[in-house]
Design a protein around this nucleic acid. Structure first.
Lengths: 185, 185
DNA sequence: GGACCTATTTATAATTG
DNA sequence: TCAATTATAAATAGGTC
């Protein structure tokens, strides 16, 4: 009855929203929209998704695909305990990860660990290969083709900063999707 | 006139699509949908976005936010050349990144480098701090609180694998958005 | 920051080319 | 893998609480 919704949305113009408050509100709404879409993409197509969304000058939000343990099992082997033949640091992280996510069910979203999730399956893959990569000083001496060299170099640096970020920011704001609602964990 | 569009979409059920072909088609469409949404989020709210989308058993697709040089400038300083006072490895990567993206205009999307983009601004931040992080063996001896320890540890491992991935996959498929169309670069 | 609200804009399932 | 199509399902701007 009131005039609450007199001003209904117009066609959006793809441009930066100048009004700061509107920009924040839109960020929040659309961030959730993106996460929801990714949720659907993951569930419907079985894809893996890792996303970081960072509003200007604030802490990042992130979203990782679900069923982390399933992903681990997919790569490490179903219900197989850590291999005694390679009880190195790799297994240590697998266990840490399992523990960190043990409270999650397969059918629920696990959005703790966030963007780490995608990257983890690559870690497991590496574990299968049962070898480690020298990424430190030696990285830049390897026989890598030009473009990869650039990318990998930047990535390496980024990695270090991401680590620093985790350190500095403390716990990042991960989001869980449950019962149709997104909520910070 | 034909029966081409007799079967119009029904309400989607949030479940894995069993038919393999439909699943692929849906993946492609929704991947583009997600990227488009992220594009809008970036442009409208000024946020930064980095995303990796990986269909089962295939190479990953990725999306990074635009205006990379602007982001660099934001952190390093407008139009400021690399600081002579700290001509270390940091500047080297900033320059590499600038060069890699020099062909991009501010108003166009730069989706080369992909997920590296987000991480880069953290790198620049680190540069500002003018110090480096010891992440190798020493990382695990640092005074990090429990949860961060776990996260950072996994992240470190995961990113090492991401490095490996970049190495193995060669050039990842980055996507550019232009004139309303997404296209591989 | 989130929960609602409504009218309108967008995304998109199923299909053919 | 991408383009086009159309009717419908979803997302969302602007607002209040």
């Amino acid at each position: 009855m009131s005039t609450r919704w007199i001003m209904v949305r117009k066609s959006i113009r793809l441009a930066k929203i100048e009004n700061q408050n509107n920009r924040l509100v839109t960020f929040l709404k659309r961030r959730n929209g993106v996460f929801k879409k990714e949720n659907e993409l993951v569930v419907m197509t079985g894809a893996e998704v890792g996303t970081i969304v960072c509003p200007q000058g604030s802490k990042p939000y992130s979203f990782g695909h679900p069923n982390v343990n399933e992903t681990i099992n997919k790569y490490v082997g179903e219900e197989r305990p850590p291999s005694p033949s390679s009880p190195g640091i790799d297994d240590k992280y697998v266990q840490m990860f399992r523990k960190a996510n043990s409270r999650e069910l397969n059918t629920r979203f696990n959005s703790r660990q966030d963007q780490l999730v995608f990257v983890l399956n690559l870690k497991i893959k590496l574990k299968q290969m049962n070898k480690k990569v020298e990424i430190h000083q030696e990285w830049f001496k390897g026989p890598i083709e030009k473009i990869n060299y650039t990318e990998a170099s930047i990535l390496k640096e980024g990695l270090e900063d991401l680590l620093l970020k985790v350190k500095n920011y403390g716990t990042e704001r991960g989001y869980g999707y449950e019962n149709g609602k997104w909520k910070a964990e």
